[in-house]
Write a protein that binds this DNA or RNA. Structure first.
Lengths: 140, 140
DNA sequence: ATAGTTATTGCAACTCATTGCAATAACAGC
DNA sequence: GCTGTTATTGCAATGAGTTGCAATAACTAT
């Protein structure tokens, strides 16, 4: 049996065309064990099959983002990283001095989300947030 | 009497050189009544005195940021905006549908900062944060 | 005022990301 | 299977921001 990717299934169901480029991009994101960057997706694909343009990578990421299939996180590196939404969403504490990253449970932000909703009627999009600062070791 | 800019005074005191370029960049930031972008600073200066390079603008902003004289905010526009730290720091709720911006009192995030410090010994840098999401009008 | 030290600038090249437009190729209907 | 429609891609140009390096010019000490 062929295990079809969740994302590919979702794309098909929503009426988007299943191009080879999209399949490969989705596959790269799903098979990555970490938060992957656009450039990493691009080089991984072009290694084996050099017919994908970098702008297609970005456009596909944009689409997957819009469909809530991937989340985008700015870890303060000067580029942005992507992660399948289905693989779980958490937050990151990123130390700007030593670069260490700690995962942060989602629940820590739910109370903030609730106050924003209650007091401002604002639905904050805080999935996969990176909070920059200083870790214990690097504190002044 | 000549009112000297706080930022210029601080730069001098810390031993940084007071070049005409820096003075003009600082002046543009201080006299702006809103959050100003690098490009706006650049065009404002070159209108009257065309001898400033855009990379100098970015390097000066980097310096002012490091000295905590300005804060940088990503309002989700595809470019970043700057604001004098001394003029007060607040947060923003930015609606990704209609683009409206609501100022948010600083205090709403202090409880989050406190939990991060307590539970993770992490000193979060949450000055001038922009929280993206959906405002009341644009809610589904 | 002048000269020396070195922080700062300008320039040009580069990275990451976005966009308009013409060419291509998925998919639907026959 | 073939054909038409139009979503999607590739290309090339553009925007925002960064960086290495040589030239310049603040500031310090004389």
């Amino acid at each position: 049996m062929t295990q079809t990717s969740d994302m590919v299934a979702e794309l098909k169901e929503r009426g988007f065309r299943l191009t080879p480029q999209r399949m490969m991009i989705v596959s790269a994101i799903e098979s990555s064990d970490h938060h992957i960057s656009a450039d990493e997706i691009y080089s991984q694909i072009t290694e084996s099959y050099p017919v994908v343009n970098i702008s297609t990578v970005y456009r596909t990421l944009e689409l997957l983002k819009r469909l809530n299939l991937v989340t985008e996180t700015d870890l303060g590196e000067g580029r942005v990283r992507y992660h399948p939404f289905a693989k779980g969403h958490h937050h990151h504490l990123v130390c700007q001095t030593c670069g260490s990253m700690t995962d942060l449970d989602e629940s820590l932000l739910t109370s903030l989300e609730n106050s924003l909703l209650k007091e401002y009627s604002f639905r904050a999009d805080l999935r996969h947030l990176a909070i920059l600062g200083r870790c214990r070791k690097c504190a002044d």
